[in-house]
Amino acid sequence: MPANPFARPSQEAATSVRFEAEVLPWLDAAYNLARWLVRNDADAQDVVQESLLRALRYFGSFHGGDARVWLLAIVRNTCYTLHARHAPEGRHASLDDEALALPDDCPSPEALTLLAVDVGSLRQALERLPPPLREMIVLRELEECSYKEIATVTGQKIGTVMSRLARARERLRAELSHPTTEAGRHDVR
């Protein structure tokens, strides 16, 4: 339920102060997740603006717990509802995890040596990951969420989180080891 707009003024003021203290400290986290999911500044700002308005609307129903995880879940949902084109497959739990596996023509992981780990290469490799894998890396490595927190944000089982994170890292490792072999690479240059 949205907060009652006709609530008593003192309650509204108290809610505002609580919102400022508990939710707004995670503005950077919200933006970081949105920016990596939609991959451009203007859309990310729209997503965060809309997410914070939603968070404010539903703040009355937020009773304690981890405000960061709560906000990140709202941001993720907002990304996928406002920008369905960015992650059409990411919304569905029925997502075929096999589709996220390493392509068959990749050299076996044993043959790889991690080469480029500079910021530019990492950024490009991360942006090329499919959204369901990209969000795993962003939540785990950039936001430093635990598996349990990632499971809460994404609405997935911890086992799914673990296997997707492993796939995401294997893909990153493969991309960064052989940056010129995979087809479809040129459209991002």
Binding site: N32, D41, L112, V117, V119, L126, E141, L142, R169, R173
Partner: peptide, 23 residues
């Protein structure tokens, strides 16, 4: 390799803080 990758992903330049306008 993965430990190295993980360290690399911790580089602050990869983090996208909220722009001032939003803040």
């Amino acid at each position: 390799d993965h430990a190295r990758l993980r360290e690399a992903l911790a580089q602050p330049d990869l983090y996208r803080p909220a722009p001032d306008a939003l803040r």
